[in-house]
Each structure stands twice: as structure tokens, then as C-alpha cells.
């Protein structure tokens, strides 16, 4: 446990001494703020047209559906691009500058290295998402949205981001080149993001499988306030898979 915390602490120091964490967090907040503003304007516009919509028997605009769902889903797209920037250096940099030799010849197990590094990513991600929670909070303070779906949606986005980070770390473990790690994880996450596309032209089990694999659909459940075992298992398995692959990649390095 001491080893895990020591490695996590060291990684956090790297994140916050170098400007990476600040840039990613600032960029993320800026983008989410921009989209929040847009969805908010959209809501106002729809609200002005409410009498007309009512007349036509169309559904009334709703804070949760218009703003919260929109913002949370957009966050996923942004994260597909930003998470790789956080994860690309996490292992690759150690390999390149030779500090990996220090870690591997110390009485630290590979799992402790992996968990320590992942924990530091989890902390950065939590801080990053917590800052953007200010936008839903504005709605809660000044409006009357349904609060539980906002919270469960946040948990869903958090779980999904942790899954993305786990995959990003696994990719970083396979290379010593940060750019390769960054690009490969971006491609992987983007593929995962659009993986439900083939479901359109398929049916039956195949379509169901593709739909299940999509993080977009899984987060949607959380955003609607439905925390299902299925979605939770989906994200947890994504996290575990990434950690497992990182562990294997580093183990292979030790015994090659």
C-alpha cells in the first residue's frame, strides 16, 4: 500500500509540476462551459416557443433532457480526445528516460506500479470532472431540474472517463513513444465511441452486442437516472481490462 501511494504521489507531482494537468483541466472546463452555454441558449429558445409546442401537442422543453443530457454526452466526446493527453506519458515516459529501470529493480511489484499510476490518473480525472460540476450546480441552484439524474449522470461520466483512462494507460504501457501512445489511445477511444454504428445495419444478437459495447448508450442510462447493474459492470470491466493489459505489458517487459 505504501508503494502504491508513493508512486501515485510521485505521478501527481509530475502532473501538477509540469503544466499538463493545468492545460488539460483548463481546456476541458472551457469546452464544457462553451457547450453548457449553447445548450442553455437552446433551452431558452425552446422555452420561448413553449406555447406553440404545447399547441402542437409536442413535449415541453425540460432542463434535464435538453441541458444535462446534452452536456454530459458532449463531455464524452471531449474526453475521447483529452484523456489520451493525460494518459500518454504515464508509462511511456518512464520507459524512455530510464526511470523504469529504477522501478523494476526496486522491491515494488508490477501491480503496485500499475495501481499507483492509475490512482494518480483517477485523482486528476476526479478533479477535472468535479470542476465542471459547477455547471449542473448552477441549474440546481437557479432552476428546478431533477437532481438525482444529474448526480447519477455525473457518476456515469466519471466511470466512463475512468474506463477511458485505463485503456489509455494500457496503450501507454506498450510503447516508449508518447506520441504513439497518445495517437493510438485516441484512435482506440474514438473507435469505441462510435462502435454502435454497425448496429444500424445489423439485427438480433450482433446488433445488441455492438450497442452494449457503446459507452454512449451505457452513459445514457446513468444520465436518465437509471443506474443498472449492466452499465456498472460494463464500466468496471473496461477499467479492469485496461489495468490487466497494463500489467501484462509491463510484466512482459520484465521477462523479455
Amino acid at each position: 500500500m505504501r508503494n502504491i501511494l508513493a508512486i501515485c504521489k510521485r505521478e501527481l507531482l509530475s502532473f501538477f509540476v509540469s503544466p499538463i494537468a493545468y492545460f488539460v483541466i483548463t481546456g476541458f472546463t472551457l469546452l464544457v462551459g462553451f457547450f453548457f452555454f449553447n445548450y442553455f441558449s437552446l433551452f431558452l429558445r425552446m422555452y420561448q416557443m413553449a406555447p406553440y409546442l404545447q399547441m402542437r401537442g409536442m413535449p415541453m422543453p425540460n432542463l434535464n433532457q435538453t441541458i444535462i443530457e446534452g452536456v454530459y454526452q458532449t463531455m464524452l466526446v471531449i474526453l475521447v480526445f483529452l484523456v489520451p493527453l493525460l494518459t500518454m506519458r504515464i508509462v511511456a515516459e518512464d520507459k524512455r528516460r530510464g526511470t523504469f529501470e529504477l522501478l523494476l529493480t526496486s522491491p515494488v511489484s508490477v501491480s503496485e506500479i500499475v495501481l499507483g499510476k492509475y490512482l494518480s490518473l483517477a485523482v486528476v480525472i476526479f478533479v477535472m470532472l468535479a470542476i465542471t460540476f459547477i455547471f449542473p450546480l448552477l441549474l440546481i441552484v437557479y432552476g428546478t431540474p431533477e437532481v438525482p439524474p444529474i448526480l447519477s449522470g455525473f457518476v456515469g461520466v466519471l466511470l466512463c472517463t475512468l474506463g477511458f483512462a485505463s485503456i489509455g494507460m494500457a496503450v501507454s504501457s506498450f510503447t516508449e513513444n508518447q506520441i504513439v501512445a497518445g495517437v493510438s489511445s485516441m484512435v482506440t477511444l474514438l473507435l469505441l465511441y462510435v462502435i454502435q454504428a454497425p448496429a444500424e445495419s445489423l439485427d438480433g444478437t450482433a446488433a445488441a452486442v455492438f450497442r452494449y459495447l457503446s459507452p454512449v448508450d451505457q452513459v445514457q442510462d446513468f444520465v436518465r437516472g437509471v443506474v443498472t447493474l449492466k452499465s456498472t459492470v460494463y464500466f468496471l470491466s473496461m477499467i479492469v481490462l485496461g489495468l490487466f493489459l497494463s500489467q501484462r505489458a509491463l510484466d512482459a517487459l520484465r521477462w523479455r
Binding site: S14, V17, S18, R97, G98, T99, F100, E101, T105, S106
Partner: peptide, 16 residues
């Protein structure tokens, strides 16, 4: 690993 101290050819330092 518990009992060795090892200095590789390039000192494994964390620059930051």
C-alpha cells in the same frame, strides 16, 4: 531487489 542498490548507466532521475 530488497537487498541491492543499483545505479544504471544513466542515472534514473525524475527531472521534475
Amino acid at each position: 531487489r530488497r537487498r541491492i542498490g543499483y545505479l544504471p548507466e544513466n542515472p534514473p532521475l525524475y527531472g521534475e
